[in-house]
Design a protein around this nucleic acid. Structure first.
Lengths: 119, 119
DNA sequence: TCAATAGTTCGTAAGTAATCGAACAATACA
DNA sequence: TGTATTGTTCGATTACTTACGAACTATTGA
């Protein structure tokens, strides 16, 4: 079967990681894995086609942000936390802390009004 | 004269900042400002056309990463360190620590061989 | 074998980004 | 005023990204 390519730790590039994390959908996926542990692609509640999610997962994998493990018909995605922490200390943590999950009405594009700011 | 737009601190978006920092040229510019203080565009030794550098400077400015101040015929670029630290604590620091400046033979694209790794 | 599930690959379209050179604008200075 | 310096804007090109649906592959389980 198809071998999924994962870059070696030493080959993980800063610019590629930052790029992979610069998309709202991918940021959401990474945040979900961080908060709820490794999970399959179909567990993500994202408003995009399957094929598009595959594309995002590949982008994250090839940048070295996630690891993909085959389990039956599923692909289990996990964060390469150790590799990233070793290579770019503090980066993943600061990104995940900075990330604010979009609310149910907000979607994944540009953030909308935060609501009640009638101060 | 033309007013340069800088987003308010509260409007600085994580994904936009990560995107702005995901380009080797822009990463270099940010790193240079960090290491040597605010400076004009023409002080950066980058192998690209003026107009391209203008484009990168605008990308960084509109994402909220840098501030552009007009001084004579020059544009002085500075890092919005306080705004970024307040909005995304630790992010800029971890990126700048992770960044490795390309050597004189390496250029700004994909990193080349690191040389003597005959261990 | 058949059907369901989970993802991938392919072809395509629309949008965005990086790049350049030429022309332009603004300032500094002789 | 004229020239040099510094940077922007414009128009074009090339390449990449995101997105979709359709067709496909692989596994599970009846």
């Amino acid at each position: 079967m198809k071998q999924l390519h994962h870059p070696d730790r030493k080959d993980i590039q800063l610019a590629s990681v930052l790029y992979a994390l610069s998309d709202p959908i991918r940021l959401y996926v990474v945040s979900e894995i961080c908060n709820h542990g490794p999970q399959s692609c179909n567990s993500f509640k994202v408003p995009i086609a399957k094929s598009t999610l595959t594309h995002h997962a590949r982008t994250l994998r090839e940048a070295g942000v996630i690891h993909t493990r085959v389990q039956g018909t599923q692909r289990i995605l996990s964060l390469r936390t150790e590799d990233l922490d070793e290579r770019f200390p503090g980066l993943l943590d600061s990104v995940l802390h900075a990330y604010v999950r979009p609310g149910p009405d907000e979607g994944f594009g540009e953030p909308e009004e935060e609501g009640q700011e009638q101060g």
